[in-house]
Design a binder for these strands. Structure first.
Lengths: 235, 235
DNA sequence: ATTTGTATTATTGTCAACAATCTTCTTGAC
DNA sequence: GTCAAGAAGATTGTTGACAATAATACAAAT
């Protein structure tokens, strides 16, 4: 019998995942980095044979790794044409952010109305304080982005809705590069910090309506900033 | 050149899907029916070899078909243990309905605020009228459910958010059996009809806020009814 | 010069066999 | 009688080869 009964265990701590990643999962994780970091350009084709040789496995696991990437929306698989890195249009990016806005709203409502919110607040305060410190510094902003991503992971896990966690995780991976784009200016980062601070207040107060509204607004702001940048890039 | 220029074509009519389904897709479609209809019981294991023999293919396509079912949440694949039909707990059903509530809210807002809503209204009126007629009849209610499902498909396609369509489609498949459960009484069906009629009004008026609120309430009602039935069944 | 048909090549789809691992059944000891 | 250890069987994971198909290059005809 474990030290802590299952009933008291927080959902995000459930050790349901297998201890060791499968071969396709390891390959997918590596490829995922390459795509998110931009080493593999959008639209680029990824061929099974090349993946197989790169990782010194047969085409089976390579093939399956690509299917895993498809599940995360990082590649698109066309019949008889193989996989290519997704290159979403501005409209599709807009669409994904809209979905994230709704589901982040649900997530933060669940947290604000949930019984575990008190345990969460110290970590939240710490990260949001860190955001406030790095928001004004003009540097590359990677610190800021990293903290935002960690904060989001923390909240997504804490919401306790497993399916929501899966979907939001997938959508987050797909939009990392656009989130980064949208948080590239100090003004936007300061707007973002103010929003996080409001959210913290709403969670402290246990105000689910406010938490949902604030979360939605944050993602919508992020969406608008990203889309604006993309339009500027595209002409 | 096609008869109608692409710019005027409704998003839901884009012929982007390949004309012919792949072998794994065909197998997955058949298995999907078996699971949704209940021929394969929740928790039941589905083995690759058995699928391969059933459809007279090798284990490769059978394996991939099971991965496709996993993507739709119809089976759960555990490492070295294979696939088994998902048997979500009451809490998980609750979770999925919560997600559907948010995303249906987004969907119906997009429709109410979208430019294509006028074209949609006649079909909506027809289906909702049909709902009103079959709501009070005590029969098996399959007509009612079928109409609700068609109505939802219509709206999901019309919203014009492709990713949303994918996610909602997957979630709908996973909850069909619980939706059916929740709409098994005449009272619930009448409540449902009133909600659809309100939605129609909101769409007519182009009131996105109202459309979202109404859609959410509909799914929440559906959730509560389903969960109540499940709790009664479980003891 | 454009287009159509054809051959070539590259790439994915499928298959059957082998390896690794998990489950279950049996056996034996306490 | 219960539990542990080990063997046997069943099932997934992986591999390499073969088949089917789509992209490409090139030649020929209008």
């Amino acid at each position: 019998m474990p030290a802590h009964p299952a009933a008291e265990m927080h959902p995000s701590l459930r050790p349901s995942a297998p201890l060791t990643q499968s071969l396709p999962e390891q390959i997918a994780a590596r490829l995922s980095e390459c795509i998110v970091s931009g080493a593999y350009a959008p639209g680029q084709r990824i061929m099974e044979q090349a993946v197989a040789e790169e990782f010194e496995v047969s085409r089976g696991p390579a093939r399956e790794a690509l299917r895993l990437l498809e599940k995360d929306g990082l590649v698109m698989i066309l019949p008889r044409r193989g996989a290519q890195v997704t290159n979403p249009s501005i409209e599709e990016v807009h669409e994904i952010f809209d979905i994230r806005a709704m589901l982040n709203g649900l997530r933060d409502r669940l947290i604000a109305e949930g019984p575990h919110r008190a345990e969460l607040i110290p970590a939240l305060e710490r990260d949001i304080e860190k955001l406030a410190q790095t928001a004004a510094t003009p540097g590359p902003g990677d610190d800021y982005i990293d903290t935002v991503l960690r904060l989001n992971r923390l909240l997504t896990q804490a919401a306790g809705n497993h399916r929501l966690q899966t979907i939001l995780g997938s959508l987050a991976v797909q939009t990392v590069r656009y989130t980064r784009l949208g948080l590239s200016t100090p003004q936007r980062r300061q707007q973002s910090v103010r929003n996080w601070q409001s959210l913290l207040q709403a969670i402290r107060a246990g105000d689910g309506d406010a938490a949902e509204r604030i979360a939605r607004q944050r993602v919508i702001d992020s969406r608008d900033a990203a889309v604006e940048h993309l339009r500027a890039q595209a002409g």
